[in-house]
Simulated assay, not measured.
Amino acid sequence: MPSGQRAQWKGFLRFGEVSCGVALYTAASTSERITFNTINKATGNRVNRIFIDSETEDPVPKEAQTKGFEIDNGQYIIIDPEEISAAMPESNKTLEIEAFIPCSDVDDVYFDKPYYLTPDKMGGDA
């Protein structure tokens, strides 16, 4: 297990009747990635992102924001984060291997962000 790095996901890897606990880690670091800020050309100052109410034009603080789905022009169904969590399907956190294929058969789009699996101490059915 990599020291100092936190697993992105933990679960089980299953080969037929045999399963073992695994942890998924990102294989590429983003710590050396160059990031840019948005700058006001006229002043050279950094620009802050502020959310504005579309009708009142008043700033809306983060704690007053929520998610919604538009059902008609300007009419929304408000959805709380708890409702979104409840709508997510249950996962048994098991990666089930059904077959192995040659790497050349995998479309490059699936290699956008590399990951690797390591053994984990999660569970005891291995």
Rank of each mutant, 00 (worst) to 15 (best):
E57L: 15
A86L: 02
P119E: 12
D108I: 06
E96I: 11
N37S: 14
F111E: 09
P102R: 02
E57A: 13
A27E: 13
V60S: 01
G44P: 03
I71M: 01
G124W: 05
S85D: 13
T66N: 01
E83M: 00
V109E: 13
P102G: 03
R33S: 04
A23R: 02
Y25R: 07
D58R: 00
T35Q: 06
C20F: 14
K121T: 15
R49V: 15
Q8N: 11
A23T: 06
M1P: 11
S3I: 10
I79T: 00
S3Q: 07
A7N: 15
G4M: 04
A23E: 08
V47E: 13
P59V: 12
E32F: 05
G44N: 01
A126Y: 04
L24A: 14
L24N: 13
E57D: 12
I34G: 02
I79Y: 05
K62D: 15
E70M: 05
K113C: 08
M88I: 04
A23P: 09
L95T: 11
I97E: 09
G124V: 12
Q75C: 07
I79P: 06
C103M: 07
I50A: 09
K10D: 12
W9P: 08
D107P: 02
R6A: 10
I101V: 06
L24W: 10
S85E: 15
I79W: 04
E70T: 03
K113M: 10
S54Y: 03
S104V: 07
K121F: 04
I101E: 01
K41W: 06
G11R: 03
V47T: 14
A27R: 13
S31N: 11
V60W: 02
T43A: 10
W9E: 13
I78A: 09
E82M: 07
I77A: 07
S3C: 05
P59L: 11
P61L: 00
K62R: 10
D112P: 07
I50M: 09
S104I: 07
P61W: 01
E63K: 13
A28G: 03
E83I: 01
R14G: 04
P102C: 01
A42Q: 08
A64K: 15
R33H: 05
D107L: 06
N92W: 02
A99E: 12
T94R: 13
K41D: 12
D125Q: 12
D125W: 09
K67V: 04
N92Y: 03
C20Q: 12
E82I: 05
S91F: 06
S85V: 05
T35R: 07
E98L: 10
K93D: 14
R49F: 14
I34P: 03
V22D: 09
D107T: 05
P119D: 07
D107Q: 00
E63D: 11
F12H: 07
G74A: 00
M88R: 04
T30F: 10
K113Q: 08
A27N: 13
